[in-house]
Computed example of a mutant assay.
Amino acid sequence: MISELANQIFVQAIADYHLFDEIDHPINNPFDSNTIEHLLYHKNWIDTAQWHMEDVVRNPDINPVDGLQWKRRIDAQNQVRTDMVEYIDSYFLQKFEGIEAKAGAKVNTESPAWAIDRLSILALKIYHMQEEVNRPNASEEHRQLCQGKLDILLMQRKDLCSSIDELLTDIENGDKYMKVYKQMKMYNDPSLNPVLYNKA
């Protein structure tokens, strides 16, 4: 099942990142470049770096100039994240290109890769909530509160994994079909963002 594979790779990527815990540490993807494993590892590394960028920019004492630079980095990273989701969807489109959808087949509300994107973010929430549960200098009340949240996150992961695997099975059986829309982010495009094109 793809969800089990994805979870294993996400856990590995998060652990590998935290060996250095540096946003700009170069990625060392251990998987062959033409595999889904490679895409999943790269996707989660991007998400993990962005997670820590979001932590930095929320420092209330950050210099405003530095804060703006970090915000722009986050915007750029979010575009990279979106591109990686589309690469993963391209993998599934190619995998299922020979499948003929049944007459009553329906399209899903989100593509497989966008569901996997949520699973990647969920892996990060679980990792960092577990850190809070184990944080030795936190109060017992804090740790118990975080344990309750962690239990919910683990339940969410179980449910999301089932949904992803069921979706891919439905596509493979022709009961559903993929219809992927490219993300048309307007704020990064100087021809679509009025603040940018009005400056020209």
Rank of each mutant, 00 (worst) to 15 (best):
R73S: 10
D55H: 10
D47G: 07
P60Y: 09
Y41R: 03
R81Y: 03
I74W: 07
D66Q: 13
R81S: 15
G67V: 04
D55A: 09
K71G: 03
I46M: 05
I46K: 02
D32G: 06
D47Q: 15
D75A: 15
Y41A: 04
W51F: 12
D55K: 14
V56H: 11
H52K: 15
H52M: 10
D55W: 10
I36L: 15
D61S: 13
N59I: 04
Y87R: 10
N59E: 11
D75I: 11
L68V: 01
I46Q: 06
Y41L: 02
Q50G: 03
D55I: 13
D66M: 11
R72T: 06
H52F: 09
P64G: 09
D55V: 12
W51R: 11
L40W: 06
K71A: 10
T48M: 05
V65W: 08
H38E: 06
N78I: 02
A49F: 03
P64V: 14
E86W: 01
P60H: 09
V57F: 03
E86Q: 08
E54L: 13
T35Q: 01
F31A: 07
R81I: 01
D83C: 01
P64A: 14
E37G: 08
E86N: 04
H42V: 04
Q50D: 11
S33P: 01
T35G: 02
R73C: 05
D32E: 13
H38L: 01
N78W: 05
E86T: 02
T35F: 06
N44T: 11
Y41T: 00
W51V: 05
N59G: 09
Y87C: 13
Y87V: 14
L39A: 07
E86L: 12
H38I: 01
D61G: 09
T48S: 03
A49Q: 15
M84Y: 01
E54P: 01
Y87N: 10
S33L: 08
Y87Q: 15
H42G: 00
D83A: 12
M84E: 14
N44E: 07
E54M: 12
Q77H: 11
G67W: 02
D75S: 14
W51S: 05
W45S: 06
N34K: 11
I74H: 08
A49I: 06
Q69R: 15
